[in-house]
Structures are given as structure tokens and as C-alpha cells.
């Protein structure tokens, strides 16, 4: 059974996303909507991690660690400046959140095959929130893009 590899990956991806949301929140304090929402969404990711905890525990930590590093996404270490910088940072968040989203989908597939109701309940709650995070990022980027790419100095 390799589900534990994916659960570990998901756990880590949620952590990375949470940290990156926090990073962007701090880096873009002058955009209050981005600032506050990124903090809220970081907390959402933390909560996903907590909900995953018992499941990860049940399937066992991935001790073999045969998971190649390249499957872990790098989080944001710093943020960029200005309108284009905001757009780029949101886009990075979008990529990280997409990874989380698709990983939830894979875990859900496995949970269905295993008929693991506890796991599926966690997926249902978290995956819907991740999908909304993606939609918010897209909404905000679509709003910011024309001004950043056409009019900003």
C-alpha cells in the first residue's frame, strides 16, 4: 500500500501552502484584501493538516521515504514588489494550491477504493475549501492582471 506516501505528500503540501499564504499576506500588506484573506486561507490549510493528522497516523508515516524530492513543491521564500509582483506571487500560490487540489483528488480515489469513510469525510471538507482557494486566487488575479500588465508603470 502506497497511500501513506500520498498522505505524507498532501500533508506537506498543505503546510507549504499555509506558509506561502502567510508569506504573501505579510509581503502585500498594502493590499488589504490579499493580506487578510491569505491569513484566513493559511489558517484553513493548517486546519486541513490537523484533520489529516489521524488519517496519516492510521496509515503510518511514510518511513521508507522513497518519495523523490522533486515531487515536493517549493514554497515561497520571499515576495515580490509592485503590481506585477503581486500577480506573480498570486500565481505561485495558485500553482501550490493546484498541487494540493489534485493530490486531494488522488487521495479521494484511494479512499473510495478502500471504502474509508473517515478519510472520505476529511477529503470532502478540505477539498471543497481548496477548490474555493483556487477560485479566489483566479478571481483576484483576473482582476489584477489588466492593470498590472497594461497600465502599471
Amino acid at each position: 500500500m502506497n497511500l501513506n506516501i500520498y498522505l505524507g505528500m498532501l500533508h506537506q503540501a498543505e503546510n507549504t501552502l499555509a506558509e506561502s499564504f502567510r508569506q504573501v499576506a505579510e509581503g502585500h500588506g498594502a493590499e488589504p484584501d490579499v493580506h487578510f484573506l491569505c491569513r484566513t486561507l493559511a489558517a484553513q490549510c493548517d486546519r486541513h493538516g490537523e484533520l489529516l493528522g489521524p488519517v496519516v497516523h492510521r496509515y503510518g508515516e511514510n518511513s521508507s521515504d522513497n518519495e523523490p524530492e522533486r515531487l515536493h513543491a517549493q514554497g515561497l521564500n520571499t515576495t515580490r514588489k509592485g503590481p506585477v509582483g503581486l500577480l506573480r506571487d498570486l500565481q505561485d500560490l495558485y500553482l501550490l494550491a493546484s498541487l494540493v487540489d489534485v493530490t486531494w483528488t488522488m487521495v479521494k480515489q484511494a479512499g473510495s477504493a478502500l471504502r474509508d469513510k473517515e478519510l472520505l469525510a476529511v477529503v470532502e471538507q478540505c477539498d471543497a475549501e481548496t477548490a474555493t482557494q483556487l477560485r479566489w486566487l483566479q478571481t483576484r488575479m483576473k482582476q489584477a492582471a489588466p492593470q498590472a500588465l497594461v497600465a502599471a508603470r
Binding site: 484584501d33 484573506l37 484566513t40 486561507l41 474555493t132 482557494q133 477560485r135 479566489w136 483566479q138 478571481t139
Partner: peptide, 10 residues
């Protein structure tokens, strides 16, 4: 919209 974030439903 999603009322927590303002994400558009589409």
C-alpha cells in the same frame, strides 16, 4: 460568489 473569500462562482 463564495461569501468567505469573494471567489466568483462562474
Amino acid at each position: 460568489h463564495d461569501l468567505l473569500t469573494g471567489a466568483t462562482v462562474g
